[in-house]
Design a protein around this nucleic acid. Structure first.
Lengths: 131, 131
DNA sequence: CCCCGTTGAGTACACTTGTACTTTTTATGA
DNA sequence: TCATAAAAAGTACAAGTGTACTCAACGGGG
């Protein structure tokens, strides 16, 4: 069940697909084109490669194909994170987060959200094993 | 001043170099070999590539060269993180962290450390502009 | 009914990366 | 002094990636 990794360009396609749920190459292209600057043919290539890697499933509808992601976003993103954290931080979470907040400006809002997140984690851990 | 990115294998070499500060290819190899399984020649290749990309500076000492990193760890890691966060989370910190803590088991110790980290952030932000 | 634009399929090609093998140089100990 | 081991230098090569161009097919609007 483990496929070859997703490249940078392919990731763009997957993100677009997740955002529109399903669509033809043209629709995927439209969902990307906004910010990035990716040729239709390039998207086509990425789609083809993703399909052959098993990340997309296609369904014929008349003359065209409708693609949808065959993997959950959570899964793909999680795998990418794992690999990244392994590569740079030997799998350790804390140094990673420290670097994150350390190297970029964190806004007060973000700090608040972080705090909420951590508090929630604490609560979850207290609840372990309780009804 | 912006060099081509560092590949996965090259990152291993850089990490080894940061850990021993400086060394010959042999010493770098020794600093890696422990866990990973990287041939001496492979390390040689990575070193050569890193040098030509401008990440290493070399200094001749007798028959061999002593290499050291020409870039600070913080810089390289920071760049990698930025690119990664951009690629998967459109540059947004919070979704990234949420996913991080969400997708892997966080130990109680890690939660405590996270809490410390966030509290420190809060303190820092209160101090902005004060003597 | 036919042309045109949208799709899909096939092909291209240079650059990067992982992974090494081979050849050359050189200091060093027998 | 000369062989040897270690390091450096050069070469190799397949797979993956970014980035597209070309051509064929087909379906809908004029």
């Amino acid at each position: 069940m483990d496929r070859p990794g997703v490249s940078k360009g392919e990731t763009e396609v997957l993100k677009a697909l997740w955002s529109i749920d399903k669509g033809s190459v043209g629709e995927i292209h439209a969902a990307i084109a906004a910010d990035k600057n990716m040729d239709y043919s390039t998207v086509q290539t990425y789609v083809r490669r993703l399909e052959s890697k098993g990340y997309l499933s296609a369904q014929r509808v008349g003359r065209n194909k409708v693609y949808r992601s065959a993997v959950r976003k959570h899964q793909v993103v999680g795998d990418a994170i794992d690999e990244f954290v392994d590569r740079l931080f030997d799998g350790q979470l804390l140094p990673m987060v420290r670097h994150l907040v350390d190297s970029r400006d964190v806004t007060p809002e973000e700090v608040q959200d972080l705090m909420k997140l951590v508090k929630q984690l604490q609560r979850e851990q207290k609840d372990v094993g309780k009804p």
